[in-house]
Amino acid sequence: MTIAALQTVPQQIETAAIAQVRPKILMVDDRWENLLATEKVLKPLKADIFKAASGNEALSLVLRHRFAIVLLDVQMPEMDGFETATLMQEHESMTGVPIIFVTALSKEEKYASRAAEIGAVDYIFKPINPDILKSKVKVYLDLYVQREQIMRLNATLSQSNEELERFAYICSHDMQEPVRMMNAFAGLLAENAEEAIDEDGRRYLSFILDNARRMQKMINDILTFSRVGREEILLEPVDCEAILRETLSEFEGVIQDSGAEVTYTPLPCVETSSTLVRVLFQNLIGNALKFQNGSQPPLIAVMAEKQGRYWRFSVKDNGIGIENGFRGRIFTIFQRLHRKEDYPGTGIGLSTCRKFIRLCGGEIDFTSAPGQGSTFHFTLPSGEAARPTRSGQQAC
């Protein structure tokens, strides 16, 4: 996908959103004069009108067209309106299409009840009030047009998202090698030519190394984000406590240097993706260690409790906190709340967490206040792979 193609995405979405969908109306009546009279009433509406003089002719039209609404006479020879409607609804194209029965029969409730059983949305009597008929038909036409526009917009958005994610994956994959080489050669230069470089040169070399590492981290994060949803998610029994312990061992150096205290209650085993749980703990524990003001050692508590069919996890810290006004940005990709000089990062981690966890049937949110720390909550379906232990928790 080229940059020029990316630039056309907003125009494609806008075109899909405002595209005019011209709906089709099917009128069925064995008396041609009734069809012509009804057509005259509905002609001002922005719709294509099809007329059928029998049930068989109507069924033939249903096979070839997709209608927004059907006006169906009840009393017809050979095949009455009730039988015609029943046969119509056997066709996939008629799923959800509103049918209005029009009749000169008795106004007994049994006929209206039968129409309702078949799935008719209305049952009106002749002689027809033109204004009422036009008003009712217009409502259903407007609903049809709105539904079609939403479906087209969703299809366009889905295609655009797939193209953008594919573009991000390809770019990130191709960028890995030159960044890796830049990082490697800068490292060799720092090791082997340190005495030949003056203080300014060493400072510039440090900038190169820092930025190369930051770029490599961003590329890896983009690749992780783009893979979520593109590859099949393997659901399996996952020991969340074991993964938390592994994650804490990865941060062992940072925990020791900062004097952090990390506590956790017994965590369950759930049927989910082990990669998801690892990504969640890596990001949430990493952020809890990173976003500190330095006035006190980090305190981090990880907990889980059963809520119906879900386990609700929480990761609580005593860090700098988050203003409520940033709630809309915190899970948006590339959105950073602080300068990278103060708190390094790519702005991709939490957006990856939310994207991944939603695919696995869960949700993520947070509660926070500036200077009072943050608590991130996420839910995971409990599944049926876990078994209860004596303590009431679950184990794999």
Rank of each mutant, 00 (worst) to 15 (best):
Q307D: 14
M175W: 03
Q149P: 01
I285K: 04
K51T: 09
R22K: 15
R202H: 09
V74I: 11
A186Q: 09
A190E: 10
A186T: 03
V70L: 12
D30W: 02
D239F: 08
Q216N: 08
R245E: 12
L59F: 02
K138L: 02
N34C: 03
L280F: 07
E341I: 01
F376V: 06
V102H: 08
L235P: 01
K340W: 03
S135M: 12
V302W: 15
S93A: 09
T84S: 05
Y123D: 01
Q394T: 03
S374W: 03
M181R: 15
H91Y: 06
C240W: 10
E83K: 09
L280S: 13
N183H: 12
S54N: 08
V28D: 03
R327S: 13
K316A: 08
H377F: 14
N56E: 15
R203T: 15
S158L: 13
G347S: 03
F207I: 13
L244F: 04
V137P: 02
R312Y: 01
L205H: 10
I285R: 09
S314D: 07
R180E: 14
I348P: 02
L63C: 08
S249K: 15
A385D: 12
F251S: 06
Q159D: 10
G373W: 00
G362P: 03
V145P: 00
R166G: 10
